[in-house]
Design a protein around this nucleic acid. Structure first.
Length: 484
RNA sequence: CGGAGCGUGGCGCAGCCUGGUAGCGCACCUGUUUUGGGAACAGGGGGUCGGAGGUUCGAAUCCUCUCGCUCCGACCA
């Protein structure tokens, strides 16, 4: 029997990136497919990550005066059809509830019965039903701005699904704000986009490009869609979050109106903005390596995992007490710590911690207990970072170590991304670049190129899309790439 | 929805062409020796082969239908 491969994930990224992605999720025990078509089961370790993301971002939006609500899962069919472009955008992917009862059929199987007068649609997004409520709640300019959010699940019957990146049902937050003026709405949509950028970079260590979507990529019914775009390690783009300026399109079709300061009746200006469990897929593809996941320290379910190393003739009680003491001290200073006490071989515990991407792995055996030290390894660097230090030193430096790991992860991802954005001038250069399979990433071109007659065909024939018109280029350039 | 492939113990697969009543690796359980970057040996438990129908003395193997999944494309957070 030969030794197992040096890396924990097979295949490695450069051999088969999509398969590598699936294997990382499995190895980290984050999620799996379910008996329900296109729907995933988020396992405890994956959900703990989502909970941390939720907590952080929820606190952030509350600073903006956003209030949480909960609206029904089911939306009357007639609501969806109120906004014309909205219908076109979502009709193809709606799950519809048509019955409310099951009866025994002739062959003994249960069959739907009790047909509904009006079918319900399982929400693909909630602009219409929240807008309907807003139309009743908003009467005066004094009721504005109104900022509502909900953390919930939505369903879009996608043709092809991938864990976290695109599932038929997914978890997200959807914010819906209403304002008196067009200017406020526009500013708000940009502000929420900035909140996404900050969250992605400051907590997920995932660098993003902020910009506006081209008309083709705009949210159905929106005046403008703003996006944060991230680049995965295979050079593909991931739309990691969007914020829409809906103008008065939805307020007019849903009748969200108020009496203004001048006594005239006016339609509100609304925005909507969302991020989803897709971000988890992004984190995997931005940070993961051939040994599995690397959790960004600030959202990692466990920031530190302690692995007891018990050898023969060693007093287990003494070791446990030492470790328990360390755990309590770490918890005290706000570090999320996990002790791996499973009856499992030590090397396997280490590999599990690696595959799960726990930022810091702490090993404690007889030596450490005797010397009142501990040994730790940074996940993103590996065993070359193995350090032994006193418990006190660790306690005073651990948050700094986690911070620098965060900074390093962000910097690494940023330089990879920047290295893979090229400037070009012509359609033929775009075609040439993506005809060579070795070339990955985004191309940046003048927005005027979108007016060329062959533009759409060129993109289509290479499976390319416009990702966004970056704010950094004042909207003069457009990024083009392959997307998830 | 178009193209391709696959459904056999928990997972990954072989067997199918040339029908004879199921096998391998990993995982799991027990024991011994081990344990600081994926342990070794020995013993052991677990499947009726996606589903339905057909051919046959006999079907995981052949035929028909059907369901599901994965990948590629179009669509999309």
């Amino acid at each position: 029997m030969g030794k197992k491969p040096r890396n924990a994930i097979t295949p490695i990224r450069t051999d088969d990136f999509p398969e590598w992605y699936q294997q990382v999720i499995k190895a980290a025990d984050m999620a799996e497919t379910s008996p329900v078509r296109g729907c995933m089961i988020i396992k405890p370790y994956g959900f703990a990550l989502w909970e941390n993301m939720q907590r952080i971002f929820d606190d952030r939006i509350k600073e903006e005066g956003v209030q949480n609500t909960y609206f029904p899962l089911l939306i009357p069919l007639s609501f969806i059809s109120r906004e014309a472009e909205h219908v076109d955008g979502f009709a193809k992917e709606c799950a519809v509830v048509t019955h409310h009862r099951l009866e025994s059929g002739e062959d003994g199987n249960l069959v739907p019965a009790g047909k509904l007068e009006e079918p319900y649609v399982i929400r693909p997004t909630s602009e219409t039903i929240i807008g309907d409520a807003m139309s009743r709640w908003i009467q005066s300019h004094r009721d504005l701005p109104m900022k509502l959010n909900q953390w919930c699940n939505v369903m879009r019957w996608e043709m092809r699904t991938r864990l976290f990146l695109r599932t038929s049902e997914f978890l997200w937050q959807e914010g819906h704000n209403a304002f008196e003026t067009a200017k406020e709405a526009q500013e708000d949509s940009l502000k929420m986009l900035e909140a996404y950028r900050e969250f992605s970079e400051d907590y997920l260590a995932m660098p993003v490009i902020t910009g506006e979507k081209t008309a083709d990529e705009r949210f159905p019914g929106a005046v403008a869609t703003y996006t944060i775009e991230a680049m995965m390690q295979d050079g593909k783009a991931l739309q990691a979050g969007t914020s829409h300026d809906l103008g008065q399109n939805f307020s007019k079709s849903l009748s969200i109106k108020f009496q203004g300061r001048d006594g005239e009746e006016e339609f509100a200006h609304t925005t909507s903005w969302g991020i989803s469990t897709r971000l988890i897929g992004g984190m995997i593809m931005v940070h993961g390596d051939d040994d599995g996941m690397i959790m960004p320290p600030r959202v990692a379910p466990h920031q530190v995992v302690i692995i007891p190393i018990l050898r023969e003739g060693q007093d287990e009680a003494v070791l446990s007490k030492y470790i328990e003491g360390l755990r309590a001290k770490l918890k005290n200073i706000g570090v999320r710590v996990h002790i791996d006490n499973r009856e499992e071989r030590t090397p396997n515990k280490m590999w599990d911690a690696i595959k799960k991407g726990v930022p810091l792995r702490v090993e404690i055996g007889g030596r450490e207990v005797e010397e009142e030290t501990l040994t730790y390894v940074r996940r993103d660097i590996g065993k070359d970072s193995k350090t032994t230090c006193s418990v006190d030193d660790f306690l005073s430096s651990v948050s700094g170590v986690l911070d620098s790991m965060h900074d390093d992860m962000l910097a690494r991802a940023k330089s990879f991304r920047d290295d893979n954005i090229k400037d070009v001038d012509s359609l033929s250069e775009i075609a040439d670049y993506f005809s060579n399979n070795a070339n990955i990433g985004f191309l940046r071109v003048d927005t005027s190129i979108m007016d060329l007659p062959n533009f759409d065909d060129t993109l289509k024939s290479h499976s390319l899309t416009t990702r966004c018109m970056p704010f950094a280029d004042d909207g003069d350039k457009v990024l083009i790439g392959k997307a998830y």
